[in-house]
Amino acid sequence: MSNRIVVKNQRNDYLPQHLTKVLVISLILLVVCIAASLAFGSRTVGWNGLIDGLFYPEVDSYDASVVRQRISRTIFSLFCGVALGVSGALMQAVTRNPIADPSILGVNTGASLFVVSGIAFFHITTANQYIWFALAGAVITAIFVFGIGSMGRGGATPLKLVLAGAATTAALSSLVMAIMIPKSSVMDQFRFWQVGSVGSASWHSISTFLPFLIIGLAAGIISASALNALALGDEVATGLGVRTGVWRLVAAFAGVLLCGATTALAGPIGFVGLLATHVIRLVLGGDQRFIIPISAVTGAIILTFSDVIGRLLGSPGELEVGVVTAFTGAPILIILAMKAKVRAL
Rank of each mutant, 00 (worst) to 15 (best):
L19D: 00
L19A: 03
S26H: 11
L27V: 14
I28M: 12
L29R: 06
L29K: 03
C33S: 15
I34T: 03
I34F: 12
I34D: 00
A36D: 01
F40C: 11
S42K: 12
T44R: 10
V45G: 03
V45L: 08
V45C: 08
V45I: 15
V45M: 08
G46V: 14
L50I: 15
I51P: 01
I51H: 06
I51F: 13
F55E: 10
F55M: 12
E58Q: 15
E58I: 13
E58T: 14
E58H: 14
Y62C: 01
D63H: 08
D63R: 08
A64R: 03
A64T: 04
R70S: 09
S72Y: 11
F76P: 00
L78W: 09
L78Y: 07
F79K: 03
C80F: 05
G81K: 02
G81Y: 07
V82I: 15
A83N: 12
V86G: 01
V86C: 13
S87W: 06
M91G: 00
M91K: 04
M91C: 02
Q92A: 08
A93C: 10
V94E: 05
T95A: 15
T95D: 13
R96T: 06
N97R: 03
P98E: 13
A100V: 10
D101L: 05
P102W: 00
I104Q: 01
L105A: 01
L105C: 02
L105F: 04
N108Q: 07
T109C: 11
T109K: 05
G110V: 12
G110F: 06
A111T: 09
L113A: 12
F114L: 14
F114C: 14
V116P: 02
V116Y: 02
